[in-house]
């Protein structure tokens, strides 16, 4: 059963941050609600106030500028799957997104909610690691940029401060020629193991200039595996 709560509907990041600062631990951001409402219904957590951030229109945009793609935190999985910009420029991200959960969760669940919940059995964090993404967090009077490596602290724990909002993710377009792949395995509702690779070749396409490897789901947080990256192809295959 869902216990009573108040719903706040701020229209800006500043207003959201003020509400979070004012109400402290009794308030929580609510985006798609796919994780939060589930946890509240099961009585695992209770908040007196939910701060619905979906009225902040500017947070669901997907844009490209100067070799980067910017994805607003409120972009739903579905929106990412259907984005023609992402299909063209980051098809591996679209592939990963189209395989998240089920159609109902993808319809309302957001990328920001996925990252902020920091559930270990999740896909985006692992792929964002090899893409070299940075996350943008904001609160009243300050903004900061966080490399994905530093974002996940432990299972269900991120480095965000209580009154901070994740506003978006910036992904650099991979250098050319590069290839990116994300594969996962599991037989339960959520993935059991996820692996992401980004390979950059030299212009002749004969040797590997850079390889990046990340693993997720198996442990508490997704992580880059630099020792494996140094080995490159011959040892790997």
């Amino acid at each position: 059963m869902l216990r009573r709560f108040r719903l706040e509907e701020p229209e800006s990041v500043d207003e959201t941050s003020d509400l979070l600062a004012r109400y402290g631990e009794s308030a929580k951001i609510y985006a798609g609600g796919t994780e939060l409402l589930l946890a509240m219904k099961e009585g695992l957590v209770h908040y007196e106030r939910l701060v619905n951030i979906k009225k902040i229109r500017s947070l669901d945009q997907i844009t490209t500028e100067n070799g980067f793609i910017h994805i607003g935190a409120l972009s739903t999985h579905r929106k990412l799957v259907e984005s023609s910009l992402l299909r063209e420029r980051l098809p591996a991200l679209v592939g990963m997104e189209s395989d998240i959960a089920n159609i109902r969760v993808r319809e309302v669940g957001t990328l920001g909610g996925n990252l902020c919940f920091a559930e270990p059995h999740a896909d985006p964090g692992t792929l964002l690691l090899v893409l070299g993404a940075r996350l943008f967090a904001a609160k009243r009077s300050s903004n900061r940029e966080i490399p994905v490596e530093q974002f996940f602290v432990d299972a269900y724990e991120t480095c965000l401060e209580p009154d901070e909002i994740l506003t978006g993710v910036r992904v650099p377009l991979p250098p050319r020629p590069s290839g990116v792949a994300y594969l996962k395995f599991g037989y339960l509702e959520r993935p059991s193991v996820g692996v992401a690779v980004r390979v950059t070749l030299d212009q002749t396409r004969e040797s590997i200039v850079e390889a990046r490897v990340a693993v997720g789901c198996a442990g508490p947080v997704p992580r880059r595996v630099e020792e494996a990256e140094r080995l490159r192809q011959p040892v790997l295959l």
């Binding site: 590069s178 290839g179 792949a181 390979v199 070749l201």
Partner: peptide, 15 residues
Amino acid sequence: VLLKRAFQRAQEYCV
């Protein structure tokens, strides 16, 4: 297992 496959796929899909 996944790493090996992901590595192969990443190379195949290089653009």
